[in-house]
């Protein structure tokens, strides 16, 4: 048995457990829990039955199963990076609004100094 076929399923089970716990504690939405669980199930299946990736590869017109996994991994990574970029952008804008409002509502005067 190859090392990855032992490590990846363990990591997958742990990851699903972590996401379940986060969902239970209300830190993750149901949709994000389902998406991540499906992803980790895929990793679990592909690491135990590597040939399973060939079935998906053929379905999408890709010749090798490994190519399918690599393309899928890149697609997921780009999606996550894009999503994080927009989240950070929104947070930056929110932060700017707060910083500006706090400054505008708190003019520094000589009276403040005396207090």
């Amino acid at each position: 048995m190859l090392v990855y076929s032992i490590i990846f399923p363990i990591v997958s089970i742990l990851a699903i457990g972590i996401f379940y716990k986060r969902f239970k504690n209300g830190k993750n939405s149901l949709s994000s829990f389902i998406v991540w669980t499906i992803l980790w199930i895929f990793i679990f299946v592909f690491s135990i039955v590597p040939d399973a990736s060939s079935i998906f590869a053929r379905f999408f017109g890709i010749s090798r199963g490994l190519d399918f996994i690599i393309i899928l991994a890149f697609a997921i990574l780009f999606y996550i990076i894009g999503k994080l970029y927009f989240i950070i952008e929104d947070m930056q804008n929110d932060m700017n609004k707060i910083v500006k409002e706090v400054a505008l509502n708190n003019e520094i005067t000589l009276e403040d100094e005396e207090e």
């Binding site: 932060m95 700017n96 910083v99 500006k100 706090v102 400054a103 505008l104 708190n106 003019e107 520094i108 005067t109």
Partner: peptide
């Protein structure tokens, strides 16, 4: 007249604050 950003946000935002103030 002094206004102060609690954290550094860049000259553009400082100008925006200045324009509003």
């Amino acid at each position: 007249f002094i206004y102060s950003h609690i954290i550094n946000r860049g000259v553009g935002l400082a100008m925006q604050t200045g324009f509003e103030a």
